[in-house]
Design a protein around this nucleic acid. Structure first.
Length: 441
DNA sequence: GCGATCAGCT
DNA sequence: CACAGCTGATCGC
């Protein structure tokens, strides 16, 4: 697809239609209440959340797409000034409520933009998505895959969200006399909270805006803004630190839970050990079970149970649990194996672990022969095709150097630095924002 | 005064 | 470093 037609998660001038994968802020940079460039395609749930994120936004610009349905767009090819048809389909990305991937098809071939996604091997919803995608493709293959490469590094291994949620439940259940604080964002991790609520038969406190979001998502009767009715509170992640917890513990025994895929690699790295070879002496509660030392060979049996009970006590009052809404490395690999794309581009450029996905997966791509495995990485000028889709990914940016050099830079300094781990423990913050507002709910 | 952008922070 | 934000300062209108 040539430039000037379709943008995904990018909101600058120059496209005829715009697609939003999900409504997290890092995908809506440039979008605002007054934005009105062109029709905006998004999922039904995203559309529902739109007014609260962008009050006053002209909702008549929104085009709701259902998953599994082809939508035909008649666009003008700027190069020839002729009318062309682009077909688009949304597929559930299992990242946060409303998150979808977009599959595009046209004269240019097939293109998949994953946005952020997590397709667990054991997830029925993910299997449904896989089937939907393969059915949509029929016998065709993806030419260009724009991939959520957030955790595109073998250091990032974590279990399914189901397993991680059970770890959270275990932590809460084994601390029956403690208040519990869980750090979350403005959208996402709802399934985790629902699981806690269901298993432990408790309501969960959230801040007033978050309660409104829960209601928009159709979740009623589970969340509350009354602190008196529950010991479990989900608080904004940014208001959440060791300092906060130490302050709270002056009043009531309280523990914090940090659900994230990120600290896990950092923790290993902070200890300056090869995450693939290390044993697990650092784990103070729970046991990390054996991992394969061969990153490319998780078996179907091995993977789902990896790191069961591997939650980490970061601090006297703080636990980290590997609950991630992004695919882990093994899932990314499986995804690529399933699709066998011609080329891959990472859409997350800011990750400390950023490497060009080709670094690990070029051998799984049809477009690159093993003999010239790294040729593309060292010659970033070959970008004709990449520039065809106007996406969030900034193809011309100098940030995107070849993976080989990026790899050298990042692994020793960021992924193998001790500071990475320590800084998390040294976070300083003034106080937690727990509003004592009692709203009707 | 307002929105947009950026720096700084976690 | 930052999964995905928040806050405050500054700039242009």
């Amino acid at each position: 697809m040539e430039a000037g037609m379709v943008s995904v998660d990018r909101w600058t001038h120059g496209s005829q239609v715009y697609f939003l994968t999900h409504i997290h802020s890092d995908h809506t940079k440039g979008l605002s209440s007054t934005w009105k460039l062109a029709p905006l395609y998004c999922s039904r749930i995203t559309a529902k959340l739109f007014p609260s994120k962008f009050p006053g936004f002209n909702l008549s610009l929104l085009r709701i797409v259902e998953t599994g349905v082809w939508y035909s767009l008649s666009l003008i090819a700027p190069s020839s000034n002729s009318l062309v048809t682009v077909k688009a389909m949304a597929i559930d990305a299992q990242h946060c409520p409303g998150a979808v991937m977009y599959l595009f098809q046209g004269e240019f071939g097939c293109m998949l933009y994953t946005g952020d996604f997590r397709w667990e091997r054991t997830s029925k919803k993910a299997q449904f998505g896989k089937n939907m995608l393969l059915n949509a493709l029929r016998d065709k293959k993806i030419d260009n895959l724009y991939l959520d490469n957030t955790y595109c590094n073998p250091s990032f291994m974590f279990p399914s969200r189901e397993v991680a949620a059970q770890q959270v439940v275990d932590i809460i259940a084994s601390n029956p006399d403690h208040d519990i604080i869980i750090g979350i964002d403005s959208l996402g991790k709802e399934e985790l909270l629902l699981n806690i609520s269901r298993v432990l038969k408790t309501k969960i406190w959230v801040w007033p805006e978050r309660l409104q979001t829960m209601h928009l998502l159709g979740l009623h009767g589970i969340f509350t803004t009354k602190t008196s009715v529950t010991r479990v509170r989900a608080v904004p992640r940014y208001s959440f630190s060791i300092d906060t917890l130490e302050g709270l513990n002056l009043v009531r025994p309280t523990i914090g839970i940090m659900p994230s895929g990120l600290p896990w690699a950092l923790k290993w790295v902070g200890e300056n050990r090869d995450p693939l070879q290390s044993s697990s002496r650092s784990v103070s509660r729970g046991d990390r079970i054996n991992r394969s030392s061969n990153i490319g060979s998780y078996s179907n049996i091995e993977m789902p149970n990896m790191m069961v009970k591997s939650f980490e006590r970061y601090h006297k009052y703080m636990y980290a649990v590997p609950y991630s809404d992004h695919a882990c490395f093994a899932e990314i690999q499986e995804f690529i194996e399933l699709l066998q794309p011609d080329t891959i581009k990472g859409i997350v450029s800011s990750s400390p672990s950023y490497v060009d996905p080709h670094y690990y997966f070029s051998h799984l791509c049809r477009g690159i022969q093993p003999s010239c495995k790294y040729q593309k990485l060292e010659r970033p000028t070959e970008r004709k095709k990449d520039e065809e889709l106007h996406t969030k990914y900034n193809f011309g940016s100098k940030k995107f150097v070849g993976a080989a050099s990026e790899h050298r830079r990042i692994r020793p300094r960021a992924l193998h630095s001790r500071e990475g781990c320590v800084s998390i423990l040294r976070r300083e913050r003034r106080g937690v924002k727990i509003l004592e507002t009692d709203c009707k709910d």
